[in-house]
Design a protein around this nucleic acid. Structure first.
Lengths: 231, 231
DNA sequence: GTGTGTCTGTACGGCAGCGCACTTTGCGGC
DNA sequence: GCCGCAAAGTGCGCTGCCGTACAGACACAC
């Protein structure tokens, strides 16, 4: 968890060049990297923070479509030559990230073909995860989706606990707060987690995977197949 | 409707080169261009056919996540250097398309930077439309989504009618056939369309837009902003 | 005509999640 | 200790969609 996985899998020389173009920044829960349609001035490579990608719906509500940690990056639309996004980027868990200006990012993409190839693969993975998420939203119950969300957040957080009120979690999942209360209550009865005043502790990771839909495994497998071991 | 919009907006010389690398093929309703995980051997630029991108869910069901006509292309994952997809490509409406081998497609992307830029923008649009669709699936009622689907199909079909049984339409939308019967019945009562034995006729296009959620306009606007008039 | 199969419409109980309102629980400040 | 407030839990009627079953309508072959 010392660096970002996308960067860490590149050749040493490329890494050095990229690090030189980055600035280490601290992101804190609640920070918003950008709003929908707003110009993206920096891309971010999380090291130990978690960032949600939310889409606004019908003026008021939001819905989380992707969650990014140190396995990914924020600002992928720049790969397509577009410096904005439909999504809001909201920091869910405080931590460090590497920040790079959009201009520098474009330059590095041109200069380092391996970097470009890697990020193209990441864009493919993101598109696939978006598709899986869409299907999951349509067909899977809140209980399943909550378990999946917790697994994905847990993977990215490093620690065994997650800080997030049921109110905010409900907004991520696109349901009422009460819905989260009930679903989380069921998981608590199964001794899979404990939830107290905004602090979620995973007690039984294996049980949580049991309680989740296959979308979790599918999403992870998609990433690993494209970007996993080969580097 | 004589050519594909993505190709048609390029410079004459580029178009000539691309056409030379293409083969005109007839696609017929029910044809499957590729299955999930299967190797993509050709990309397609529809001229007057309609193709759905479906994702399999839980072994049996399918769900449509994108619908592509002459404004788009099929095989966009090759832009990321990946020659497969999570989606199934199913032809919804017969017609002509330009077919290009994957190898030729890669070559043309390298040789024609304007082509590459154009398709990068298209990938951006697709990603955005996927995000909009995900939110729509979560929050909007079947009635709204049905109206949106019909609008998008109508735009891409050219004609005023669409051939599709309620059974298949239900699979696209991820609902029961009976759900489509009811929702379509309500639209018929409003004299917005008529539906008879697999043939849907749009009677009141403006009314249909009224009956749809804002996702339709948002999706169209996204395309037009990125790829519209400027060419 | 008659028969057959497909497509469409109707009916009904069940349930997940909704909106709303209210209570209980725990934490921090004074 | 007590208060104030945010977080979490409970109750209730409602609705949209589900699963299932069945009945009519139309197209086509013979």
């Amino acid at each position: 968890m010392l660096t970002n996985r996308l960067l860490g899998s590149l050749r040493r020389n490329d890494q050095r060049q990229l690090f030189a173009g980055c600035k280490r920044v601290e992101l804190r829960t609640g920070d918003i990297l950008w709003q929908p349609q707003q110009r993206i001035r920096h891309v971010y490579f999380p090291i130990d923070c978690i960032v949600s990608q939310l889409i606004p719906v019908d003026a008021h509500a939001h819905l989380e479509l992707a969650i990014v940690g140190n396995e990914g990056m924020l600002g992928d639309t720049l790969l397509f030559g577009v410096n904005n996004s439909l999504m809001q980027s909201l920091v869910q868990g405080s931590g460090t990230a590497l920040q790079m200006t959009s201009a520098m990012f474009r330059r590095q993409l041109e200069q380092l073909p391996a970097f470009r190839r890697k990020l193209d693969l990441y864009a493919f993975v993101l598109q696939g995860q978006l598709a899986l998420t869409a299907a999951c939203l349509r067909f899977h119950s809140l209980d399943l989706r909550l378990a999946r969300w917790l697994l994905m957040a847990h993977d990215r957080s490093g620690s065994g606990s997650i800080d997030l009120t049921q109110e905010l979690l409900a907004e991520m999942l696109g349901v009422r707060r009460v819905g989260v209360t009930n679903a989380a209550g069921r998981l608590q009865k199964l001794k899979i987690l404990s939830y107290s005043r905004g602090k979620i502790t995973i007690l039984d990771r294996a049980g949580l995977e049991q309680a989740s839909c296959a979308c979790y495994r599918a999403s992870e497998a998609l990433y690993e197949d494209a970007l996993g071991y080969t580097g």
